[in-house]
Design a binder for these strands. Structure first.
Lengths: 241, 241
DNA sequence: CGTGAGGTTGAAGGTTCTCAAGCTTTGTGG
DNA sequence: CCACAAAGCTTGAGAACCTTCAACCTCACG
């Protein structure tokens, strides 16, 4: 079970919510569904069934090439959901799948509409979409202009901040329920090279990664290697305009 | 001057607009500003000044690494604009610059709000945001899982469809006012390797690229090489839900 | 205690990069 | 209209980074 609602935790970082808003959010998260790892929640080409909201675990957006190569294009961690306006499109251009065991909700279009009718919520939710786009842009520079080891370092820095926002980090350490193959499909590398790059990160004393748990041993060092500027995540400007 | 308004042309692909809607759009495009190539329209770290709308020419979103490496994360071609809700964020996480000579508008937040108060327009504009996200995802798979030559082939296929939507293509041929260095910063390659890959595309009889004009000689061949599926652009579902 | 998924290692090869030089085109001032 | 400069394009050579393949190891789990 989820202790405190990660959706609420996340949205509160982005704007003040009334008690009523919070209650509405808690309400829609009532009946989360447990899903095993490696299960598709939405499939490319099919009509979107609703907004997918992750309450626990790691899911991802991905696409496959015909040769079977997979590119993961985003992680959905607790508190994340896929595009609000997804119902505007006739078919999914990508798939969504769980990477670990997850608790997920599917929000029907009318539920989403109801959320967007509450001005404070609408504002925060729109902001979330913007942040997701910013996040994707950072992934683009990661794939286009960073070396293997920098890509991994950057990913770990990003996840630290994102998971911190929902209370899943303690002591610069968090659960990372991904295989090296998953990391490879995220960073555009082969899993062999991910393995070797991870060893470099370990060898440099920057991280420890064992049994699906990541410890960041030298955060400043890791951030410097990744050239990480957390501003793009905009998770700290609580009172911002 | 722009013959017919590319913004209107583009939006009409995505949903029916009333004459009044069209008139409003035409109205806001009145005083476009001419901008030379290579000029920043918005800079990373600064507060967003408004929604940038391109009426003619090529602009781009980009980020720089501290070593000077540039990654272009999106093209803004005629009819494209940057995020509608950009005013929700306190600062830009990336820069926007012209690549060629351009005609651009900066729409003040209240103008955007006025547009979003018109239901049909709001719906279409939300859809545009969704398509832009889909486009970015395709760029992610391009950088992560395609070879140099495939990246270029895919980019050229994409631009063909996007420019067709605003009437800038005739006979599988369009103006491409980009340098090889620009293409390199788009595809995450070096300009030397872009040069060699272009030669391969020419040698295979797929394209002709001279004096900033691209001719696609063998579209099926190019699409096959790029594994191009234009569905992600969603530019054909004119009557779609 | 066997099985399977995931992690690790080595070797060889391919793709892409960097550097550096020469060439071509474009634009500008005389 | 020419000459020149600057920007962009092309080419070669060598090196770095990353991939592939294949084998082996390890650990969790039934």
């Amino acid at each position: 079970m989820v202790l405190s609602n990660p959706l609420v935790r996340k949205l509160e970082h982005l704007g003040a919510l009334s008690g009523a808003d919070r209650a509405v959010l808690e309400g829609i998260c009532a009946e989360a569904r447990h899903v095993a790892p490696g299960v598709d929640l939405a499939r490319e080409g099919e009509a979107p069934e609703g907004v997918i909201l992750v309450l626990d675990g790691f899911a991802c957006r991905y696409k496959l090439r015909v040769n079977g190569a997979r590119q993961i294009m985003a992680y959905l961690v607790p508190g994340n959901f896929c595009d609000l306006d997804v119902a505007l499109l006739p078919s999914m251009d990508h798939s969504i799948a769980t990477l670990s065991a997850c608790q997920v909700m599917k929000l029907a279009p009318d539920v989403v509409e109801m959320l967007l009718e509450r001005p404070a919520l609408a504002r925060v939710l729109r902001k979330v979409s913007l942040l997701e786009a910013a996040n994707m842009r950072e992934w683009l520079i990661n794939l286009g202009r960073r070396s293997a080891i920098e890509r991994l370092a950057h990913l770990f820095c990003e996840l630290l901040v994102r998971l911190q926002a929902v209370g899943l980090v303690s002591d610069d350490r968090y659960d990372l329920p991904l295989t090296q193959a998953d990391l490879a499909d995220t960073t555009g590398l082969s899993s062999v090279h991910v393995n070797r790059s991870l060893q470099q990160l370990r060898g440099a004393g920057l991280i420890e990664l064992r049994s699906r748990n990541l410890a960041i041993l030298d955060l400043p060092g890791l951030e410097e290697m990744a050239e990480f500027r957390q501003s793009y995540l905009h998770l700290k400007d609580r009172a911002a305009a």
